[in-house]
Nucleic acid binder design. Structure first.
Lengths: 214, 214
DNA sequence: TCTTAAAAACAGACCGATTGGTTTGTTTTT
DNA sequence: AAAAACAAACCAATCGGTCTGTTTTTAAGA
């Protein structure tokens, strides 16, 4: 018997080890970023959280920036998938367009613009601002997210296919509004009034475009 | 003659010197923040830009965080004043409500959500996230900005006083949308389509609330 | 009004701590 | 036995901040 189940240390292939290690380091990078911010997320902090030695780290990444780039890309790609998934269960559920819209809005708010994801989103955007290479890698993913929101959400909510294109722009405006609202909560703390503002937003969307006066 | 006009070094009072120095350092802090980001805005960089020695600096600020707080407060207080000023010239200018709204929107976009101010806004918000004291100092100013936008812009644009309250919420939603749009441009670069999105938003605003069906 | 001593403003060398990254050597997988 | 994965000591550079001493302004006394 070559392999015993009771073996205390699992035998892993090198490709497995490599991928696991890189993922572990990327996750620790995001953790440190969320907890301490860009300035506080030093290599020492990240490695301590991941439980990885400096030597091991240097075998998998050449620079800290490269590791951050991998972590940020993963975060944003996951967000795109989540955006697609979010709109999927909608069509079957409810027929009232206002209720559907409101449900999507609240789900998006909770998933993207509160807590950890919100914090990481802002950290990553700002990190990319003064790091040209990171920016070049993340910019297309940010565009893809907006594309997914426009097409995916637009299709899921439009009453008819020909209304889908118009709906796309409205969905993009919607995530822009949510982002700005998230920024306010990030800076000034949670505001109960924001829930009412989101309902007001839904009212505006379902009333537009206004039916031509008859 | 006690004072000669040709005196090469102007004689300044100590209170003058102090205020000038603190303002100079605050300005250099914002410059460094805008150019290099939070991580790159080290004390050395800031002092080199201000042309101030380390010893002189320590005489005016106890910590770097204190200096950053002063600079950030100044930035945001100026923004509130600018927000008030922005809406003032509107009433006299034009009568078409859509044109007035669009003008305000474009002015706000240019003043707050592009270029240097946009960059500094995001830097400051994120710096406050992991610095409890800075956050405590800035949070009320962020609330005051939203208050100014709601009341000030709402009043300036509402057709009647009783519509002012409803307009206030719409103006707050407007700056939220602009912020989110700014975030997209910060992350993915300028997008020509955004100008069309802003026009679309104006259309939505002037058509709301929809007149009750008769 | 001139003198003078204290206080405030300023300059630059200096400091311990921490940064991102490397080097040397050991263990695990191929 | 070669290569990849891992560990820990090590490194120069930089960080925020302090220390010592000089120049400028201020306030008080003659």
């Amino acid at each position: 018997m070559e392999q015993m189940a009771s073996q205390p240390v699992a035998r892993r292939s090198q490709t497995q080890r490599r991928e696991e290690m890189r993922q572990r380091l990327a996750a620790a990078t995001l953790d440190a970023l969320a907890e301490h911010g860009h300035a506080g997320a030093s290599l020492s902090v990240i490695l301590a959280r991941a439980g990885v030695s400096r030597g091991a780290w240097s075998h998998h990444f050449e620079t800290k920036a490269e590791m951050l780039a991998l972590a940020a890309e993963g975060l944003l790609r996951d967000a795109i998938i989540a955006a697609r998934t979010l709109a999927l269960p909608l069509p079957a559920d409810m027929s009232d367009p206002a209720a559907r819209l409101s449900a999507l809005l609240e789900m998006a708010w909770g998933r993207f613009y509160q807590g950890r994801h919100r914090d990481l989103l802002f950290e990553v955007v700002l990190a990319a601002r003064t790091d040209a290479e990171l920016r070049a890698r993340l910019a297309p993913i940010f565009d893809a997210f907006i594309g997914e929101v426009g097409q995916g959400w637009g299709m899921a909510l439009a009453p008819s296919p020909q209304r889908g294109a118009a709906m796309a722009d409205l969905m993009v405006l919607t995530v822009y509004m949510l982002r700005g609202m998230a920024m306010q909560e990030l800076a000034a703390g949670d505001t109960p009034h924001h829930a009412a503002l989101r309902r007001l937003w839904v009212d505006m969307l379902i009333g537009f475009p206004a039916p031509p006066a008859t």
